[in-house]
Write a protein that binds this DNA or RNA. Sequence first.
DNA 1: CCCCGGAAACGTACGCTGTAAGGTTTTTGC
DNA 2: GCAAAAACCTTACAGCGTACGTTTCCGGGG
Lengths: 217, 217
Amino acid sequence: MPTSAKREPLTGDRLLTAAVSIADTEGVAAVTMRRVSAAVGVEAMSLYHHLPGKEALLDGLVDTVVMEVVSQISIVEESGADLGWQATLRRRFLTARTVMLCHPWAPVLIATRTSIPPSAFAIYEGLLATLIEGGFSYHLGHRALHSFGSMPLGFVRGLFSPTAGDDDPSEEDFAAMAEALPHLTSMMASEIQIHQGDTLGWCDSRDEFEFTLDLLL
Amino acid sequence: MPTSAKREPLTGDRLLTAAVSIADTEGVAAVTMRRVSAAVGVEAMSLYHHLPGKEALLDGLVDTVVMEVVSQISIVEESGADLGWQATLRRRFLTARTVMLCHPWAPVLIATRTSIPPSAFAIYEGLLATLIEGGFSYHLGHRALHSFGSMPLGFVRGLFSPTAGDDDPSEEDFAAMAEALPHLTSMMASEIQIHQGDTLGWCDSRDEFEFTLDLLL
DNA sequence: CCCCGGAAACGTACGCTGTAAGGTTTTTGC
DNA sequence: GCAAAAACCTTACAGCGTACGTTTCCGGGG
């Protein structure tokens, strides 16, 4: 079957599912040839009968995740009510996002890949189709795809997401920071006041994601 | 000097500039302890007197690049004419982008870092200050910062930037692709027709960057 | 029945990485 | 001029990806 690259003939996707679960539990750095081979009960070099190398393994990892996004989207959109291109894209991005939240390592891994996974083309194809149906020209659709950035894959850069260790900023350091970055600290104070109560949620994630999303549409 | 982390006392930033030039010429994968130490005429282990480890070296790399962005921005904005917050941000993002174009490895490296470089705070502080002056509330400013995504650092995900090796797609493959991804191929055909002449520029970069930018503002 | 040919897994080995431990040289302050 | 401290070097180890040679397994023709 020379036309298309059939993923793995025999124990093939067992490798990938094993690798995904390793990445989920121990981080992507733990995805090593020996570690994966041990997980499927095999010696390291045997992997080379199913994969050309480490890079292909990582490519397979992101491909697996993106395929999960694709299938999840098709599940969500099973009930075929047409609700307009904006709501459709919105729901699609949010679906992608929930998948990515299950595999925190995926965004950074995708960012490091040099080639984009073939399954990602399917996503972009679907997005573009929706845009065209919505009356977009090809040109505008093209620009729109660019504008979405990494949203089709369900993530945006964390900004100060984890607040970087934030181990008890010790008032003097905080004061120094307030002096050096007055607006940022004022903003933080203001935002924390608004979000008092729901810890962990003051900056990150879903609200901001949806805001940016609605802004773009 | 326990309060602030002075970068490197003696040969300190020589390490970083050497590392940057290595990354520029040979790729970020070539930035290894031994390679960098050899570049400054020293043995590998000596680096540990100036850096706690490899991660710190990479952190220093991104910090160097971001600082370059900061200084470049301040140079550009030297002539103090106030041209409104939108034009200011626009020019700032484009400045960041030109710096990043000189160090193609920087975006992916930044994406992989767990902590954001301290110098990046300076950039966000400046952005927020401009927004506040422009009449934004802290809350809206906060959302705006999120919406900018990675633009303050001068990059967006490449989408199909290098078209992935694109080695002579051999008509049959192209036909298969056209069948599987009809809208995408139609769009490509349409866009290529528009941009006939300026090769390499049909998809990537500056135009799209500016479009997204203007859309957000 | 045996045998054997090819695929799949194994084992060994090499060069590379980051870095822990400890010895040696150079610089510096009194 | 001489100790103390900083900078440097040497050695060593575990782990990585992977090239290469050997072994094991299994199905079809003599």
